[in-house]
Design a protein around this nucleic acid. Structure first.
Lengths: 142, 142
DNA sequence: GTTTTTCATGCAACTTGGTTGCAAAAGTTT
DNA sequence: AAACTTTTGCAACCAAGTTGCATGAAAAAC
């Protein structure tokens, strides 16, 4: 995780995104959360921004490959900050875990997505491996 | 794929679902489609049913493990008929493919989901492996 | 360094996918 | 058949997210 505003500014720059104050806040919030966040979750943490502004940031980030979006089965898309410094394709494809109890989504950074063979003539552009269940924290609590 | 109404009736019965006319129609439509269908897609094929009725069928089917729901990144959940005759957990976990061009989702029945090791104390309840890209039909068309 | 032009933002209104309340219809039980 | 339960259609509602538009901030042109 980064800690200075300036680093987020550079990160945005790296991805060809003009670093406005709002955008830095959104990038920072995503990074500090340490897990993929939904629009609504970000709204709760960025009280000063309108949800439409956050939404537009996320869309822009996605277009510029600063975040990638993932559907976890909650009915909200979540956005994860790409930690690769370049704006090229993700080198860091890992499994995600959605906890059905606490409704949080975790990155299993240590667990790469096993690859598969597609049928002929299917072109893969992205892959999502999502496990749903009960996370360690919720399990120990029950 | 089945072909007689009676078979759907039995299928519903097997899963402890009272087989009303509407429910048989929904099960049949799902089966005939041969791919996971969204509520909206089903609405288009079942003009005589109200969407709330279809929605309630799908919810009921899901509760009784006759369908399972999957999020494919379109913003609509899709429902796939479980072909296992029993109402127990799916023996038939396969990869899905979402075409970003025609917005259809396909089952890659021949491609089982490769398993992974979860970190300690994480309990997996279900797994979703979703590939997005361009399907064979759309690729050949372009 | 001010004007011009482009870009970003907040607000409210809208869109979309889906659910719910309720009364009528269909199906069960006695 | 009467009493009861379940299912259905309709309309109203809801939540998540997007869009139109007027205002404000930043960058480019002069």
């Amino acid at each position: 995780m980064m800690s200075h505003k300036k680093e987020y500014l550079l990160l945005l720059d790296d991805h060809g995104i003009r670093p406005t104050a709002n955008r830095i806040l959104v990038a920072e919030a995503l990074d500090r959360a340490g897990r993929p966040m939904s629009l609504m979750e970000l709204e709760d943490r960025l009280l000063t921004l309108d949800k439409s502004s956050i939404s537009r940031c996320l869309t822009l980030f996605k277009e510029n490959h600063l975040v990638h979006a993932l559907e976890d089965g909650s009915d909200a898309v979540r956005y994860e900050l790409c930690h690769s410094r370049s704006h090229h394709e993700d080198d860091d494809q890992h499994v995600h875990f959605y906890c059905e109890k606490c409704h949080r989504t975790f990155c299993l950074h240590e667990t790469p997505i096993p690859s598969i063979d597609l049928p002929d003539d299917y072109v893969a552009l992205s892959v999502n491996y999502m496990v749903k269940g009960i996370c360690a924290a919720c399990k120990s609590k029950s």
